[in-house]
């Protein structure tokens, strides 16, 4: 019995262009598997943004638009609302990095949550600006060395990182906000369930659903893929605890 295959929602003959060991590939595969399972391929419009996440449209076999840096939730709002005005029911999600979602696009992200915009946002948090070579970002942890914090992040000099999933959970329009990780098999499978839940909340029309995914960046962390996962398990999950911070069905 076949227990694994390339998801239908992954473009045939497409190869990920991420660095070796980067968790982006796992996250996109999970999204594709859920699109298959929920039979969303024909009604999905995905929104990619700037950063490593921008090339989403090269991999996912669904309608896709690129948004300017940080504006993915605004673009998704326009798509969702326009289709509703046209009497179409479409599934709309964004796939963004932490710099995109929580720094340059924080206003668009948070206001989409406050409006209870019926879209899903997936935010890949790798604690730096990966595509430009690993600079200090909104989620860079205290003491973390990046190319623009050579002596480590310092509260007095750089300020503090944002806990995105907790912040989005505070917005009244949010239906679901969770943080997940991809550092081992158990967490990958649980991340899949969490993304699936976020997608289902949109399908049920419950409002803004959000998943932050702690993701490795071996190249810029200067660690092996394996050690990157250990860093997430041992260090990052202490700063960014995994869990569901808002669930309108359980609250």
């Amino acid at each position: 019995m076949q227990v694994f295959n390339i998801p239908r929602a992954i473009k045939q003959n497409s190869n990920f262009t991420f660095c070796p060991g980067c968790d982006h590939g796992v996250a996109i595969r999970l999204v594709a598997q859920i699109i298959d399972e929920l039979k969303l391929q024909e009604k999905t419009i995905a929104v990619a943004s700037s950063g490593c996440s921008v090339l989403l449209y090269d991999f996912l076999d669904v309608d896709c638009i690129e948004s300017p840096h940080g504006r993915a939730c605004a673009v998704a709002t326009g798509i969702k609302r326009a289709h509703r005005a046209l009497n179409n029911d479409r599934f709309v999600f964004t796939y963004q990095g932490d710099g995109d979602f929580a720094s340059i696009g924080l206003a668009e992200s948070m206001h989409s949550a406050l409006r209870g915009e019926n879209i899903t946002a997936i935010c890949i948090n790798n604690t730096n600006y990966g595509m430009t070579g690993g600079q200090l970002g909104p989620t860079t942890t205290m003491g973390q060395i990046t190319t623009t914090s050579p002596d480590g992040r310092n509260a007095h000099y750089h300020g503090f990182p944002i806990k995105t999933a907790e912040q989005i959970a505070l917005c009244e329009g949010t239906s679901f906000s969770a943080r997940a990780a991809l550092y081992d098999v158990k967490n990958i499978l649980s991340t899949k369930n969490i993304i699936k839940k976020a997608f289902q909340y949109q399908i049920e029309g419950l409002g803004f659903s959000f998943v932050e995914i702690l993701s490795s960046c071996p190249t810029n962390w200067k660690l092996s893929p394996k050690d990157s996962h250990l860093k997430i398990q041992n260090e990052l999950t202490k700063v960014y605890p995994l869990g569901i911070f808002k669930d309108v069905k359980n609250d």
Binding site: V3, F4, F16, I188
Partner: peptide, 22 residues
């Protein structure tokens, strides 16, 4: 075992198919 964990962790979908003996 056909458990598929290799496919689950592979970030490249380089493990393209997994078959499990029933």
């Amino acid at each position: 075992l056909g458990c598929g964990v290799c496919a689950v962790v592979c970030p490249e979908i380089a493990i393209t198919e997994v078959y499990k003996d029933e």
